[in-house]
Design a protein around this nucleic acid. Structure first.
Lengths: 169, 169
DNA sequence: CCTAACGTTGAAGGTAGCTTTAAGGTCAAG
DNA sequence: CTTGACCTTAAAGCTACCTTCAACGTTAGG
């Protein structure tokens, strides 16, 4: 199958597939005499695997080191290790998010808790001082590869101006 | 106070402070006759406010539109609105993280649940098929400005090679 | 007077993950 | 024989948030 069909089947754009090949995430594919790339059925599964791994929070670099040349022969130990560490990363992130959330909730409460005898300016100062005072231990996230979510997992990184329809599921 | 001292007090680098000024996040400061920037005490609080807002998930753009020219006079309605929406963003992220987490946990379980009579290659195929089959509704995150965490909230975006010590909090 | 530490600027670089563009070649239908 | 849909490449652009560099001026201390 040609790249366009693979793109349709996988929900990725052709440029993205070529990009993955360029950075060595996909091994170089066979070419037809005319230079067109030609993919085996399995390619759909590989791409599905990659996007799934991305949504789980793996970087393309990580995915590359984990992906075996042959889909049937994985490095079991390394894979399990990576999965386990990624879960730990997620949990660290969850802790930070939870912290940010209560921080914001407390801030809202604090703003609304303006004493009757205080004007807005003074209240602003009170809230500010409170907020800057409470800087807890900032939840030291030990793992360095927090790369979950953000753009990668966003709806679609939309170019300035017009939107594309592009499958992307 | 000069920029170096402000940097020390705030924990930011001078380049970062100048950068903030350049993008209009900080209003242009007074200069001494020699051209050096000179900051009022309040600047420390403003920078603290900015980094705190960043850690809560606000982009510099958002912060700029929220920051009043005068720290005492906020746009109460807009601020509350932004805070509320940011909390909603966080909650959406939390839901996605939770989903990713159970996804990974189930994957681990599935890998380990290899039937005794199945070899590794066949098991790999079984797991892969299972995994690609279960693509739930993907938790439609509605809010578009999910920009929480990631680099911004990372330890320190370390340049390739050597590390710096730079305060950073 | 020299040196080190600080300040200034504009421009360029870096990250991650793509997309877009430019400039072309190929192919099937009408 | 033309049109339009597809394919190719290398290179540049995009986003957000800074850092780094080059080239220079200023200032405090010994």
């Amino acid at each position: 199958m040609k790249i366009g069909e693979l793109a349709r089947l996988s929900g990725l754009t052709p440029s993205r597939i070529r990009f993955y090949e360029r950075i060595g995430l996909l091994k170089t594919v066979d070419r037809r005499p005319n230079g067109y790339r030609t993919y085996p059925q399995q390619a759909v599964m590989i791409l599905g695997l990659i996007t799934t791994a991305q949504r789980a929070g793996f970087t393309l670099d990580e995915i590359r080191t984990l992906l075996p040349p042959d889909l049937e022969h994985w490095d079991h130990a390394t894979l399990m290790d990576a999965l386990t560490r990624k879960i730990a990363d997620i949990e660290a992130l969850q802790a930070r998010l939870a912290q940010s959330r209560v921080h914001l909730l407390r801030l809202i409460e604090d703003i609304q808790a303006r004493p009757d005898d205080m004007d807005c300016a003074a209240n602003a100062h009170r809230v500010l001082t409170n907020m800057l005072a409470e800087q807890p231990e900032a939840l030291d996230v030990t793992s360095d590869d927090i790369r979950l979510l953000d753009k990668t997992n966003r709806r679609q990184s939309v170019s300035p101006g017009r939107r594309k329809k592009m499958a992307s599921r």
